[in-house]
């Protein structure tokens, strides 16, 4: 069954007397190990979608089932646990803690998970090795390049072994070469069985994904599978 199931999800913002329909009755289902890209023009509702999928935001209407659990019925602490353990969120602007080293940034989700220091360190180092940054773990974010920062953020998202990796324009602030590196990393993760959902503007990036969903004015206008990609994974 679907890992994610959206049932008539709406998100409205009321600005004065007018309402913006950021998401407008979305029905969607995403299975385990899918590699999905949300595309669409600016303001089409992609980020809104990701925030709802990541349990950071709540829909105005509709039901969201994650792993068969109805998200709307969960309390604050349960939502925190979901964000901690089910979801790894990657942001366009990295969102690392500026004063903490790469290692500490990656260890932080494990602190909230309640893992002891020794294990925490071991798992964080493993995650940093996975993104090829083990040699930079004592650097603080300002001492790292954009690509390196995004890799720290990916390590942080991966460290709790979440069921879903959510990435909102993960390569939006990166140059072409670094984008290629990051996408290669995503491909590798996907091949290892990771479910990945990302938002992108770039066709090059979307081409990496199995499935492409196009949003426009808060509605799904296109939902297709990449021919060659699908062939690759059948």
């Amino acid at each position: 069954m679907g890992l994610i199931r959206l049932d008539s999800i709406c998100k409205y913002y009321s600005m004065g007397d007018q309402t913006v329909k950021a998401l407008d009755h979305i029905n969607l289902s995403i299975a385990k190990n899918e590699y999905v890209a949300f595309i669409g023009s600016s303001g089409s509702g992609k980020s809104t979608m990701m925030n709802i999928l990541g349990c950071l935001d709540k829909p105005t209407e509709g039901d969201y089932f994650l792993n068969e659990k109805e998200v709307a019925k969960l309390n604050q602490n349960q939502l925190a646990d979901i964000r901690n353990q089910e979801i790894g969120f990657i942001f366009q602007s990295f969102n690392l803690l500026p004063r903490a080293s790469a290692l500490h940034n990656v260890m932080l989700p494990l602190v909230y998970k309640g893992i002891g220091l020794a294990d925490r360190k071991k798992q964080a180092v493993e995650a940093l090795e996975k993104v090829n940054l083990a040699d930079r773990m004592d650097h603080i974010p300002s001492q790292l390049s954009g690509g390196q920062r995004q890799r720290v953020a990916i390590a942080r998202a991966l460290v709790t072994k979440p069921s879903i990796l959510l990435a909102d324009e993960p390569t939006g602030n990166l140059d072409t070469q670094t984008t290629q590196d990051i996408m290669a990393l995503f491909d590798e993760l996907h091949n290892e069985g990771q479910t990945i959902i990302m938002v992108t503007h770039e066709d090059d990036v979307a081409r990496h994904c199995q499935r492409v969903i196009r949003l426009s004015d808060g509605k799904v206008v296109e939902d297709y599978y990449n021919e060659n990609k699908e062939a690759l994974h059948v």
Binding site: G54, Q76, A80, N95, L97, R156
Partner: peptide
């Protein structure tokens, strides 16, 4: 505020 948001996004609870 942003840092607090980041912490919450990666699983910090109120008491943390």
């Amino acid at each position: 505020t942003r840092e607090i948001g980041i912490c919450k996004a990666i699983g910090a609870k109120r008491h943390h």
